[in-house]
Design a protein around this nucleic acid. Structure first.
Lengths: 191, 191
DNA sequence: CAATTCTCTTGATATATATCAAGGGTTTTT
DNA sequence: AAAAACCCTTGATATATATCAAGAGAATTG
């Protein structure tokens, strides 16, 4: 079950077979069921999770109790709350399982060890975080100043796959609009 | 004028004197005046900029012509559009000078060279991007589901320094509210 | 397979915040 | 030092979108 992870690393950095063996031993497989929590508000994030199979999503809950989805993670993506992971502070985020999942998780100690011992891992991690940053900035750009309809159009252009895998109320939350508004936008759109 | 950069690198990775000499030679000093553009929509971002002195800010302009500030950068911070820098695609961002500035800029070729030749530079860059990612995610969390007043309160907690250096209309844009709304929020707040 | 819980849609109404407008103070430019 | 441009405030009005409400399918559960 480590195939995807190996591919992911090799896509960005070259790794010898021995390095790969050393690397994989630091990960721990973890199966999770839909609706379980990988992380809840107030917890400290102790592990980075690589999604081998399934889907997760992270969100905050505001003072009036509504969810705001931060992002999704499907096969081949990483999920964690880096702020909490690196600072040890409790998180404001929830990470919930959207589809039954198989994860590979890595704790801080092992992560630091890999950074020290395998330069290719540090390179891989740098590029992964870099890409995550770029994706997040795109998300910010798309949230600012666009109408509900424009946000939906951008999603159709940039991440149409979400619509097949994620319930519309979570897509609405991800776009920062109410489910009713998203529903109306889609209604107008198909006419 | 390279003191701040040296400090910034040494804060996160250890660098020998020879490595530092090698490193600094890849940067080019660049002075810029208020209201000049480091980058305009449609350009390709060719350089990473480290702010030795002054202040910059980045923003998008939406279909109705209004600005949306993405972030600010003061002394000791980096500024660039990483998406454009790494992909070579034209940017949707403007980067404008807020206060007369002294920058140290690094092009892609030299950046790649430093990554290859100086492991400490790769470590430094990894950590910088990691921190930028964390900061951006904080920004996203704070933009979602908060009222104008709550956003202002969070800003007071987390980045009060912005208020002393940045005109309120840009702060408003950064928070995603109109300048009038921010003005009213501040009015209520002081009573 | 009935019951329950989710998910999505559609309509009516409410509201936070944008927009429009005007005026006064400050800073920058000439 | 006058002129111009910029920045902030306050008031009146408009509007996109949230919220409330109800119902119908679809999916999950016992």
């Amino acid at each position: 079950m480590y195939e995807l992870l190996k591919e992911s690393i090799q896509e960005h950095a070259s790794l010898t077979d021995e390095e790969w063996e050393l690397c994989r031993n630091n990960f721990r497989p973890k199966r999770m069921l839909k609706r379980q929590f990988l992380l809840q508000e107030g917890d400290v994030c102790r592990e980075l999770a690589f999604v081998e199979k399934g889907a997760l999503y992270s969100y905050t809950v505001d003072s009036s109790g509504s969810k705001h989805v931060i992002r999704f993670a499907f096969e081949g993506w990483w999920m964690a709350n880096l702020l909490s992971f690196f600072t040890g502070k409790p998180t404001r985020l929830h990470i919930e399982v959207l589809e039954n999942s198989e994860l590979l998780v890595l704790d801080r100690k092992n992560h630091d060890k890999l950074l020290e011992e395998i330069p290719a891992y540090e390179r891989y991690h740098r590029i992964i975080v870099q890409n995550a940053y770029v994706a997040l900035q795109q998300r910010v750009e798309n949230a600012l100043g666009l109408t509900a309809e424009e946000k939906y159009e951008r999603l159709l252009e940039e991440s149409p796959a979400f619509l097949n895998r994620v319930p519309l109320n979570l897509v609405a939350s991800y776009l920062g609009v109410s489910p009713e508004t998203l529903s109306r936008v889609r209604g107008n759109f198909n006419r």
